[in-house]
Design a protein around this nucleic acid. Sequence first.
DNA 1: GGGCTGGGTTCACTTGACGAACTCACTCGA
DNA 2: TCGAGTGAGTTCGTCAAGTGAACCCAGCCC
Lengths: 148, 148
Amino acid sequence: MWDRSRCSVAGTLAVVGEKWSLLVLREAFLGVRRFADFQRILGAPKAVLTDRLTTLVDQGILRRVPYQAPGERQRHEYRLTQKGIDLHPVLVALMRWGDQYLAEDGDVPLELRHRDCGEPVHLALVCDAGHELSGAREVQAEPRVQAR
Amino acid sequence: MWDRSRCSVAGTLAVVGEKWSLLVLREAFLGVRRFADFQRILGAPKAVLTDRLTTLVDQGILRRVPYQAPGERQRHEYRLTQKGIDLHPVLVALMRWGDQYLAEDGDVPLELRHRDCGEPVHLALVCDAGHELSGAREVQAEPRVQAR
DNA sequence: GGGCTGGGTTCACTTGACGAACTCACTCGA
DNA sequence: TCGAGTGAGTTCGTCAAGTGAACCCAGCCC
């Protein structure tokens, strides 16, 4: 077996796995940028939110951008970096599973569409030969072979 | 805007977002089934592990299956249900991001291959017209329209 | 009957989350 | 110029959760 302590899953969770982090990112993907909006929508304690935003900025997942609303002093808002945008599949995967197994009457699932053609979009495992796999059972995991 | 408190991402995280849960599932996908193995590989405190395994079973993500090793009394092991298997994309997404941004020298990334054709596999957003989207920017999110 | 083993439970301690109250810098209106 | 208002925090007492070590217990073996 291989070394699990440095597994990428554990690493990623160490960065974005704390409470509220992924919810902050979900909101960021939906266009939320300001502290007060994150706070109002999520209902997270301000202290925790401050902490999560700072770590996300430190990790290069969000960046702080100054802005000035008319009649207000300069403040800064939080925007996704490319590194943050690349977490999109994680959120889509979490959302998909929730839609599938946790939906209740009255819930309006969020639908993702291809901006270019308008068709609904789903997450899929695709192999380099172009096959779309039907599920986890078709996947074989192994450590990448390396020269020594 | 729509009601975020019942968002599927939040729902899914409420179920599998506690510390250690996703790591337990990662191991489950790699074939780990017994308490002692989870404990040894993850290094999680036994009390927490007991708790996480029970909630995962209660949620129908794992199921407890009795087994008996020769010369030992009957015990039970933990196996993924379909509901658990469907969390695969979440783990793949987390792993991919970690490989991309957190890899260090000496880390051996785990490679996923299509069992049928042997080609490497990646996660992709695919629209119903068959286009493979290049990134989150090509996605448009909106609440699904519903009759009222 | 005594030791071993897997799968836990208990307990004292530390870390983290929570909500309310307080702060600070700046703007606006009187 | 003064005072109220606002966004973005910080501080603080309290409570929940995670941690590691020690302990337990059923069944098997010798």
